[in-house]
C-alpha cells in the first residue's frame, strides 16, 4: 500500500506506506482516535481515499468495491449480525455470489472461531456480543478472503478465550496462504499476535517494521504512556 491518504470526517489520515506479506499478521497500532479504523475503511473503499492498494501486483482500487471486498475482508469493531440464524449469517457472502454453502463448511469455520456446530441454528441476534463477534469473523472467513482485517477484535471478545480464538483464526488464514491486518490500541495485543506493525498517531505514520524494534524507537514513546 503506497501513499494511502484520505480527508474524511475524522480529519486527515496519511500518507501511509506499508506491506503485508502473505502468511503474516500485521498490526496497525496507535492510540484511540489516531485513524486506525479509517485506514481499514480506506483500504476497502468505505472512505474516499487517494493512493494505491496492490495485491499480488493487482491494483485493488481499480476493482469494483464489492469485488475488492470479497478479496479483502474487514470485520468492524462493533459486531453486526443480520436477522436469521447463524448459518444464514455465515452463508450470506456466498449466497450473494450465487453459491450455496454446506453446513459442515460453516460448522468448520465456527469451530475455528471457538463456537460449536450447535450454534448454527441459533438466532444470531440473540447471541452475546462476544459470540456475535465470532460469528462475524466466521462470516468474513466464509468469503475466503486473501486479506482479513480485524478492527480491535479483543474489545468484543471475552478476554479468557479471545487470544485463543484469534490465534486459531490467524492459523487458519496462514494455512489458506492469506494475511491478517490487526488493528489495536493495545501494545500487548500487537506483541502477542503480530510480527510487524505500523504505528500511527493523529493520522500520521510514525514507524513501520518489526514490533520489538519500532517499540524501542523514540517515536513510539507515546505508546508507553498510560493514556495511550
Amino acid at each position: 500500500m503506497r501513499g494511502l491518504r484520505t480527508r474524511c470526517r475524522t480529519g486527515v489520515v496519511g500518507p501511509l506506506q506499508f506491506e503485508v506479506p502473505s502468511g503474516e499478521v500485521f498490526a496497525i497500532l496507535g492510540p484511540s482516535g489516531s485513524g486506525k479504523t479509517t485506514v481499514l475503511r480506506m483500504i476497502v473503499r468505505l472512505e474516499d481515499a487517494e493512493g494505491e492498494v496492490m495485491l499480488d501486483g493487482e491494483d485493488l482500487w481499480r476493482l469494483q468495491p464489492h469485488i475488492l471486498r470479497r478479496k479483502v475482508a474487514l470485520v468492524p469493531q462493533e459486531p453486526v449480525v443480520f436477522s436469521g440464524t447463524v448459518f444464514e449469517n455465515i452463508s450470506y457472502g456466498r449466497l450473494l455470489r450465487g453459491e450455496n454453502m454446506r453446513r459442515d463448511e460453516a460448522a468448520d469455520l465456527l469451530s475455528v472461531c471457538g463456537l460449536s456446530e450447535d450454534f448454527l441454528d441459533e438466532t444470531a441476534a440473540k447471541l452475546s456480543t462476544g459470540e456475535k463477534m465470532r460469528v462475524c469473523i466466521a462470516r468474513a472467513l466464509a468469503n475466503k478472503p486473501v486479506v482479513l482485517m480485524l478492527d480491535e477484535p479483543t474489545a468484543a471478545l471475552d478476554p479468557s478465550i479471545g487470544a485463543k480464538v484469534l490465534h486459531a483464526v490467524f492459523t487458519h488464514m496462514r494455512q489458506q496462504g492469506g494475511a491478517v491486518v490487526l488493528v489495536t490500541h493495545r501494545v500487548q495485543d500487537a506483541l502477542s499476535f503480530a510480527e510487524r506493525a505500523l504505528i500511527i498517531r493523529n493520522g500520521r505514520q510514525i514507524a513501520v517494521g518489526n514490533i520489538p524494534e519500532i517499540l524501542h524507537s523514540p517515536e513510539a514513546d507515546f505508546l508507553k504512556q498510560p493514556h495511550a
Partner: peptide, 16 residues
Amino acid sequence: RGEVEARLLLGATAAQ
C-alpha cells in the same frame, strides 16, 4: 448504517 456496511463488506453490491 452498521448493517448496511456489514453487507457491503461481505461483497454485496449497493442494490443487494
